[in-house]
């Protein structure tokens, strides 16, 4: 009963919401990227869970592998942007990244 479909889904939902909360509440650009990683991992966990309990083929695993690949690419580009922004403006506070607003 403990290792059932529902328990994995609850863990995944919990991770997803923590990711949302991190993105909403923290003010550092890097912390927001951390939250995105949590959200992506929650989705990936769901894919593997359904692959195990639902169809029992490996398409979910493949999807998770691609999610990991995309997450790595996203982290590389995102962090490059953060570092570049820090070089130019000397801040990574999300509220001070507002040049397009004005």
């Amino acid at each position: 009963m403990m290792m059932s479909l529902a328990s994995y889904l609850v863990i995944s939902a919990f991770l997803f919401l923590i990711g949302i909360a991190v993105i909403l509440s923290r003010k550092s650009l890097i912390a927001i990227l951390l939250g995105i990683e949590l959200i992506l991992n929650a989705a990936a966990l769901n894919f593997v869970t359904y692959s195990r309990f639902g169809s029992q083929d490996l398409d979910g695993h493949i999807m998770t592998l691609f999610i990991i690949v995309v997450a790595a690419a996203e982290a590389a580009v995102g962090l490059a942007i953060v570092i570049r922004h820090f070089q130019l403006k000397e801040t990574i506070h999300i509220d001070e990244v507002s040049q397009l607003k004005e």
């Binding site: 890097i30 990683e37 962090l79 953060v82």
Partner: peptide, 28 residues
């Protein structure tokens, strides 16, 4: 992932995140 029987995905998770993404984050 291991409890779900996904051994390769688990190792990939470790490899990409531990060896790549987290180190990138620490650098940033």
């Amino acid at each position: 992932y291991l409890t779900l029987g996904a051994d390769f995905v688990a190792a990939t998770q470790l490899m990409v995140y531990v060896g790549g993404v987290v180190i990138l984050m620490l650098f940033a």
